[in-house]
Write a protein that binds this DNA or RNA. Structure first.
Lengths: 236, 236
DNA sequence: CAGCGAAAAATGGTATGCCAATAGTGCAAG
DNA sequence: CTTGCACTATTGGCATACCATTTTTCGCTG
């Protein structure tokens, strides 16, 4: 494991906090205690504390101690690699279509312009796989940003990061000829943008849903992977 | 300045990066260089590097060096605490309603039973604020779990954790008499469950949307906070 | 016995030193 | 001249030791 050790220690500390029934404001065990508990130096625990401090989970007071500021998430950050590509894609479909619907109501002219520009870029660079993918990502991100809600942007961003870091997705992606789908996806994107222009929440939702449905088909039809069916969700 | 020194060092390093014309992927000066430059120990610089690493500005490679991952000003770095309660609630509305729609298509009898049980508990413990809130959370989580998609569960969970850790939300929540809304919310939950029983995606989406709309009203109508209007998103 | 103050203990803050992994260098073999 | 390998230098990783601040303890004094 070439992981940075302080992160590991940090996660362990989170676990300890969850196992104990500490409340907000309570004093944490000292750095020295954790050091001995995990069999590492205080330096390392200290680095882990810095991590927790930046995550706003704890507050550190010189000479006094460290205090719990918020309870850590129950879910200790699932490994990207053990989530299937289909699950990932389905999550994107559910969330991004809802986000698109929301965006249709809040989108500004500047947003629409940026979306158009990205789309143009996508078309121009269709041959360049690298840039086309970047434009793809940018388009979806811009839709999320049009909601003016940073949490929604965060969520969409998280899913894309997972996609980019998911080995199975890459594998799936690799076996498909690039040129075959970029054209289709571009058309899909255009439809989404059109619905956003019309400020139609339902239209944007359906367009985004259909787009990701197409992505699913492209990826799974040609492969031997089983893909559960979720038709019937759309009503347009 | 009673600030933690590593943060100060971290900011200085950001300044240095900006002053220099380093590009993405370039190698940063070593920890030792910065230590001498600022007249502090390498430990401190190291802690600052950890801060920058967590902020995803740099990437640290043992034995090799540290490399610029993004330019500092690109990331305003929002923390959990400065997300407004309204933004949070809106994100929940968008995402949880979509999740509910998805759940309507995948929900099992066992899920429905668990949901009913939780609802019964919620009714029975309405006087007990602590338990009522726990049941509330449990209900929403069960809906997410009914999608059979762990990523969607993760997303919903994240938003709830943010809620529980958000100081402004707590403040807002505190000023409202408990009894006044738990009854309403219970009715809302029952409606959601009813739609899930009917396996109506649209119905579940609308019910969940309306529920969170009611939550919004309860929280913001009684307070002096401005709440943007998002009616028109529903079409039922 | 209450209050106060100094000493001691606890705790985070900082510095130094050595270890391990990586990158660089130069010499020898082909 | 190129290539490969061993040796050296560089760089981050981790541990130990001591410092500064805060908290606690304890005894003195009124």
């Amino acid at each position: 494991m070439a992981e940075r050790l302080y992160k590991e220690i940090g996660e362990k500390i989170k676990q300890e906090i969850l196992k104990s029934d500490m409340g907000i404001g309570d004093k944490l065990p000292t750095e020295r205690v954790y050091a001995e508990l995990f069999g590492v130096s205080r330096t390392l625990v200290r680095e882990a504390f810095i991590m927790l401090e930046i995550e706003e989970l704890i507050e550190v007071k010189k000479g006094s101690g460290s205090y719990l500021k918020a309870r850590p998430f129950d879910r200790p950050d699932r490994q990207v690699s053990d989530v299937g590509p289909f699950e990932l894609l389905q999550a994107r479909q559910v969330i991004e279509s809802a986000v698109a619907a929301c965006a249709a109501l809040t989108v500004t002219k500047a947003d629409l312009q940026r979306l158009q520009d990205t789309l143009d870029l996508e078309e121009a660079e269709m041959q360049n796989v690298e840039k086309a993918n970047a434009a793809d990502r940018e388009f979806h991100l811009l839709v999320a940003q049009a909601t003016q809600n940073t949490l929604l942007v965060d969520n969409v961003l998280r899913l894309w990061d997972m996609r980019d870091n998911n080995p199975m997705w890459q594998q799936l992606h690799a076996r498909i000829p690039e040129s075959s789908y970029h054209g289709q996806w571009l058309k899909d994107h255009e439809k989404v943008l059109m619905q956003l222009r019309k400020r139609s929440a339902e239209g944007a939702r359906d367009a985004m849903w259909q787009h990701l449905e197409n992505v699913k088909r492209t990826l799974f039809e040609l492969s031997d992977t089983e893909a559960p069916d979720f038709d019937g969700y759309l009503f347009s």
